[in-house]
Design a protein around this nucleic acid. Sequence first.
DNA 1: CTGACTGCAAAAGGTTTGCAAAAAG
DNA 2: CTTTTTGCAAACCTTTTGCAGTCAG
Lengths: 142, 142
Amino acid sequence: MSNEWDDVLRDQGYRITPQRQLVLEAVNTLGHATPEELLSEVQKTAAAVNLSTIYRTLEVLEQVGLVTHAHIGHGAPTYHSVDTDAHIHLVCDTCQGVQSIPADAAELFVQMLREKVGFETDVAHVSVHGQCATCMDRQKLL
Amino acid sequence: MSNEWDDVLRDQGYRITPQRQLVLEAVNTLGHATPEELLSEVQKTAAAVNLSTIYRTLEVLEQVGLVTHAHIGHGAPTYHSVDTDAHIHLVCDTCQGVQSIPADAAELFVQMLREKVGFETDVAHVSVHGQCATCMDRQKLL
DNA sequence: CTGACTGCAAAAGGTTTGCAAAAAG
DNA sequence: CTTTTTGCAAACCTTTTGCAGTCAG
């Protein structure tokens, strides 16, 4: 099994295009990014690239396992490289802030779900909602 | 502190309207429901009610703590009554199915987040993505 | 009465689709 | 050359907003 991004695509019957390369690079560069943000990043290099290409490309890249997305607030999903260490998003419903913690922090929970329910959790896709430490403190002052 | 739905609203300076009553009833009746689904339910009784009223009403009901919502797939959020037992949604990214498990299954995880990161998790709002037992099995057959 | 609430229509945000032209292999 | 991929424009779906009329208190 090959590991280079272009081989991964080829192996699954997809073609290699500048757009796909640029989107993948943008995902790696930005770390967390919405389709719209990826478009801006890509357009720094190739201004003619279209938003719908971003969507279609992300779909392909996700299918072959090069990127994943997570739903963070109400808005657009954010995409990340699969290379990046898997992480869980903690979303504060008060300040809308997002912090990440290592995925293995949920190891026990994931294991429990696997054993009890047979559910295989995609940890990186999980968003945990609640209230962050800062907003908790601020609330106590009231 | 009063517990009746109408007192809860009044106490926070909101008015009691038929629309608010109907939406709250619909949330209780349906258990899990998207705004669109709530509209249909409400319109069984009052056909003139508008979708934007549903949205505005849900916002109010959520603010006063009578309902919550959770983000389940890519699509619309689903609302539930706060009376209902808190539960966690397990969303299968393959078949889009949703199953619920009791919130206290995540007790340890929640506690860990509280201690290590100071993050107070809103368990009912959590959506856990992954692959359900059925789809795991089906995949093995290929 | 008066301000909060609603219905309607239009706008906004995010995503998808059909099609003809361009590019990959 | 053949088939995939792209750009463009339009469609679509969900949610939000402005406004004038209506209703709760």
